[in-house]
Design a protein around this nucleic acid. Structure first.
Lengths: 196, 196
DNA sequence: AATATTTGTGAGTAATCAATTGCTTTCAAG
DNA sequence: CTTGAAAGCAATTGATTACTCACAAATATT
């Protein structure tokens, strides 16, 4: 017998993410994954029923760890604007380390293909927007943000801004630091959030 | 003999865009295109050397017509802020009519695959950012926009914002009007562009 | 030690798809 | 009316790929 179920599954997910970052999703065949892990191709199917299931596991991994990263160091005693700043920072720091994220998020997967995967992604994005909306709302209540701020709309645009940024990052071969960009985006957002 | 070269090419490009909007790029096979046009699959290759060449033609078509749409009704006598508003409006109105645009723009194509296609896309995006930067610069000079506006940075973020918006539009099955969203985005941007 | 279960593999299957080939039809130019 | 080129097609090819199957080896259970 080889390695125990759980460890192999993690290895496969990790290999899939590495390959995705390098090659793009389309080129990640079960053969390529098997080669990377160092097992035979049919062995993949001992651990995952289908190829889509592998990507489902990848998306779950990302959702889980991104969520952790965003919450880590979130101090409820901080004022909401500081919490939001940290959220953006933590988010981009995490993605900076995982180049597969934009490739998975903005692949053809997402534009139809598997409804199951699409649902997973939508759920993740909804959670993100919900959290940002919450912080914006709190900031409004504490009079840190402008009174007429449309929290829902703004949260969606912040999410859109980040997504667009990730696309550029991915298209231009990760040739700038996402982490640094967090500061710049935060500055960019100030006039939107705060009174004059 | 069938239809003349140029007309068939256009038909193939159009069919490809229609199918892409419906099914996503991955499902657009040369067979599917041929069926839609009403010719045999090998006939496709009388008009295009490879499948990638078809998508190159699609991207060129988009680049050309998006550029036209953006410039159409651009009155150089308008103040720069009004020109920018119209640019966003025209851009989103155009894309609203062509659902293939986000699918092509944010497909796996873009995340490596064909370097030729990637170069085409980058060129298109660069042209867009250049134009926006120009208008921001003019607005600054006319004191319509804040003095400390980083035109380059802001142009990139406006582009990112639009890209993120297109992703949401595509993911949520085009269930809101992009054209209406143009106004909302414009309002959102006001505090960024203008002095308090 | 005997047995059952899990993990592993080599060989293969079936499907998909872009692209080729050889031949036919259509049409315009001379 | 002939001829040559463009446009068309049926049949096929070659490559890729997710997934299966029959069997072997390793490990856990009794």
């Amino acid at each position: 017998m080889g390695k125990p179920q759980e460890q192999r599954r993690k290895e496969i997910v990790q290999a899939t993410m590495d390959l995705t970052a390098e090659l793009g999703i389309k080129s990640v065949s079960t053969q390529a994954i098997a080669d990377k892990v160092g097992i035979a191709q049919p062995t993949i199917f001992r651990h995952f029923k289908t190829r889509d299931d592998i990507f489902a596991a990848v998306i779950s991994w990302i959702a889980e760890n991104l969520s952790k990263a965003i919450l880590s160091g979130a101090n409820p005693n901080d004022p909401p604007d500081e919490q939001l700043r940290k959220l953006l920072k933590n988010q981009l720091t995490f993605i900076n380390k995982h180049r597969a994220v934009p490739k998975v998020l903005f692949s053809d997967l997402l534009h139809l293909e598997s409804p199951k995967l699409k649902a997973l992604l939508q759920e993740m994005m909804n959670g993100y927007i919900k959290r940002v909306t919450q912080l914006l709302q709190q900031g409004k209540e504490n009079e840190l943000f402008r009174k007429d701020l449309d929290t829902d709309q703004t949260a969606r645009y912040i999410a859109a801004l980040i997504q667009g940024l990730l696309i550029r990052w991915s298209v231009y071969e990760f040739n700038f630091s996402l982490e640094k960009e967090a500061e710049i985006i935060w500055d960019f957002l100030q006039p939107v959030l705060k009174e004059n």
